[in-house]
Computed example of a mutant assay.
Amino acid sequence: MLGRKAARPAGDAGGEALRLEGVRRVYGPEGNQVVALDGVSLSLPVGSFTAVMGPSGSGKSTLLQCAAGLDRPTAGRVFVDGAELAGGSEAALTKFRRQRIGFVFQQFNLLPTLTVMQNVTLPLKLAGRKVDRRRAQEVLERVGLGDRLDHLPSELSGGQQQRVAIARALVTEPRVVFGDEPTGALDTRSARAVLALLQEAVRVYGQTVVMVTHDPVAAAHADAVLYLADGRIVGYQQAPTAETVAERMTHLADEVERQRITAGV
């Protein structure tokens, strides 16, 4: 049982990509507070692909947002590539994210008036970095869009738009790529292609991917699954399959209830 202990999935021994220490996130005023995360600690190594699953309201999205610097924990510490996400101004936090973190969301968040190439190189411009069009083209070729550089998002399918979003996340060479239901808006074939790209980013290029999903088939593409319930880590599974993940999710509610009874809650 993991409880609040660190979860360490299989991965490259080349260092620690992400670490959370006792992260707690509470919303609402005193007397009417909601605990979204309740002392979560975990450690993920470089070159790992981790899926995060749990029932609605379990804290999945809050975990991702705190880990990625999109939300500030009420308590606890977050480290990305050994550097702590803490204090400082919003501008400093934004700069940190642009340097070390990539994002892939369910909605592709592409700018409709920019071409594929312009969308992919936008994070470099925002970060004040030199735009290397050659590298951007190489990344787009990796995701199968080398012949669509001048197309607008409206000229692409949903699966192609998500591949542009993945290329945009990878072009800055981030330490961690966070995915929030990245296949949720895609058909089965497109979803499979997107998950294969994320696997390639991990296994071939050594990226670290953390993906929130509700889909056991998507989770089965990861190296490991973290299960959340009531804002806490309640399970960890290596080498997941769609069947074992679906079974675990089915019994998760019963398991959480047993834990509450044992704890006298």
Rank of each mutant, 00 (worst) to 15 (best):
Q207M: 13
G158W: 05
G14C: 05
D150R: 09
R142L: 15
Q137H: 14
V35F: 02
A67K: 07
L44H: 03
G31S: 07
V256M: 09
A239Y: 06
E181T: 10
P123S: 02
P45M: 08
A17V: 10
A17E: 08
P174W: 05
T250N: 11
F103M: 13
R189Q: 15
F178A: 06
G88H: 09
E84T: 09
T250H: 12
G11L: 07
A67F: 10
M117L: 15
F178Y: 15
A136G: 11
D254S: 12
V23K: 01
S154V: 11
S61T: 15
M211L: 15
L228M: 14
D71E: 15
L85N: 04
L85G: 03
E173G: 04
G231M: 08
A191I: 05
G47T: 06
G235H: 01
Q65H: 15
L63I: 03
D150W: 02
P240G: 01
E155S: 11
S56D: 10
L44R: 05
T62S: 11
H221A: 14
D12S: 15
A191H: 03
A220S: 15
E90L: 14
V210P: 01
G15Q: 03
A68K: 07
E155P: 03
G59F: 02
L195W: 00
Q33R: 15
V209E: 05
G158E: 02
Q161L: 04
R98T: 08
L20W: 07
P174L: 04
E21M: 09
P45E: 08
G22V: 03
L93H: 03
V212R: 02
H221V: 09
V164F: 01
R163A: 07
P112Q: 14
Q237E: 14
L186P: 06
P112G: 05
L2S: 12
D230I: 02
D223N: 11
A86W: 11
K125T: 14
G11V: 11
A239D: 15
T250F: 01
A167N: 03
A10H: 08
R98V: 06
V46F: 01
V245C: 06
G158F: 03
R19A: 13
E84H: 12
T113E: 13
R97T: 06
S89A: 12
G264C: 00
E21A: 14
T121G: 04
G69E: 09
A51N: 04
I166C: 02
R8F: 14
L126Y: 10
G158P: 00
P174A: 07
G264S: 04
V34I: 13
P182Y: 03
R192Q: 14
R4D: 12
R72E: 15
N109T: 08
E30M: 07
G88K: 13
G231P: 01
L20M: 12
T262K: 13
A263F: 04
G264V: 04
Q107F: 15
P123E: 03
R175H: 13
A253K: 08
P123M: 05
T241H: 08
V204D: 15
L63F: 13
R248E: 12
D147Y: 00
M117D: 02
L198I: 10
V225T: 09
V80N: 08
R100C: 06
F105T: 04
A51W: 10
E247T: 04
A165N: 01
T262M: 13
F105Y: 11
V265R: 12
L93Q: 12
P123H: 06
A239E: 14
G15F: 05
G69H: 11
R175A: 15
E21D: 14
G76L: 07
L37I: 00
